[in-house]
């Protein structure tokens, strides 16, 4: 038993982080729609879950979880989780997988508990669930209704369509995988918010001292650190559960999404309170991350929905089974 990331897994995450540091600064989050896409394709992010026979890396979700933390940390815009995580499963066996791995097929989805398709206007292909079955929809066959909201860097769209191709895959595995990827992004976003807020608290002075020297600020930030520290293992375990198709997988995915969403929302609320009024403005980049946390926490089922499922899973079954 070895519940720690391997050197390969860490190296891939570091590569993603490096690419994002170079190609996805806050300015790109604010104004770009899909920055760093080709660079991420080059290091294999979009082929990570694509089988090797389709020019992918043939890896598992557990290998994607740290790279996705990095995309969350950078608040990377674009339909990245949908393209890199949902699409390889929904298109399993499809020749389009090669293009997917190469980063030349952008996909947006509306599956599971998702009501809207994120970044659908950028997509080369839409995959939409209807009556429990995934359907591929070409952009020209779709009518998109923009549903503008708090996260301007992750626009949502209502999708109606005329023609669609019924896919032969199941929708549930893709829903689980993309939900875990988004949970990982939430952990990454929470880490960024914690780091940024710690940095601000070290330098901003009030009453003659850095505000980070006040115990109330210290303890709030310590709470965030604890919440993130103990949300992350649930996300990692959920990724393993998806890869191994464990009987507890649905519970584990809900636990990951709920815990990550709540930790990130705590990080967001604390970041705003510690920054004070300045955090509330467009003067800082903070607002980009706050909006992203709110938007991702609600995506693919918010904490309320997943908590209600967890209640049933844990109290409603005759025997609760521990991982593994």
């Amino acid at each position: 038993m070895n519940f720690a990331f391997t050197d390969d897994q860490l190296a891939l995450a570091a590569a993603v982080r490096q690419v994002l540091a170079a190609h996805c600064p806050a300015e790109a989050v604010r104004n770009g729609r899909s920055p760093a896409w080709s660079q991420l394709a080059e290091i294999g992010l979009f082929g990570l879950l694509v089988p090797q026979e389709h020019d992918g890396l043939g890896l598992g979700l557990v290998d994607a979880v740290l790279p996705f933390e990095e995309t969350g940390r950078a608040a990377l815009p674009g339909p990245v989780a949908e393209t890199a995580v949902a699409a390889p499963l929904l298109l399993a066996g499809d020749p389009a997988l090669g293009k997917l791995a190469a980063g030349s097929l952008r996909v947006s989805v509306r599956i599971g508990d998702q009501v809207y398709a994120p970044d659908a206007d950028l997509a080369d292909l839409l995959i939409v669930e209807r009556e429990g079955v995934p359907h591929a929809v070409r952009p020209e066959a779709a009518r998109l209704t923009p549903q503008s909201g708090v996260d301007r860097t992750r626009p949502l769209f209502g999708v109606e369509f005329r023609d669609a191709t019924r896919l032969r895959t199941e929708v549930a595995p893709a829903v689980r995988a993309v939900t875990v990827a988004v949970a990982a992004q939430l952990v990454g976003a929470a880490r960024h918010l914690l780091d940024t807020t710690v940095g601000y608290a070290r330098t901003r002075r009030q009453f003659g001292a850095p505000i980070g020297s006040f115990q109330a600020v210290k303890h709030r930030l310590a709470e965030v650190a604890i919440a993130v520290e103990f949300a992350a293992p649930l996300v990692y375990a959920a990724a393993l559960a998806v890869d191994r198709r464990l009987p507890t997988v649905d519970r584990d995915v809900s636990a990951a999404k709920a815990a990550a969403g709540e930790a990130a929302e705590l990080a967001a609320g604390t970041a705003l309170q510690v920054h004070g009024a300045i955090g509330y403005t467009g003067e800082l980049d903070l607002g980009l991350w706050l909006a992203r946390v709110w938007s991702l926490s609600a995506a693919y089922g918010g904490p309320g929905l997943h908590r209600s499922r967890l209640r049933t899973a844990i109290l409603g079954t005759p025997e609760v089974r521990r991982w593994p």
């Binding site: 519940f3 103990f230 949300a231 293992p233 636990a255 209600s308 967890l310 899973a313 109290l315 521990r322």
Partner: peptide, 26 residues
């Protein structure tokens, strides 16, 4: 249901502490 929710949370917190400790042990 409200208490049930808190019980489920506690069970998962224990699970998370376990997983976290596995990582620390490593």
């Amino acid at each position: 249901p409200v208490l049930a929710d808190q019980v489920a949370r506690a069970w998962l917190d224990a699970e998370s502490y376990r997983l976290h400790t596995f990582g620390t042990a490593r």
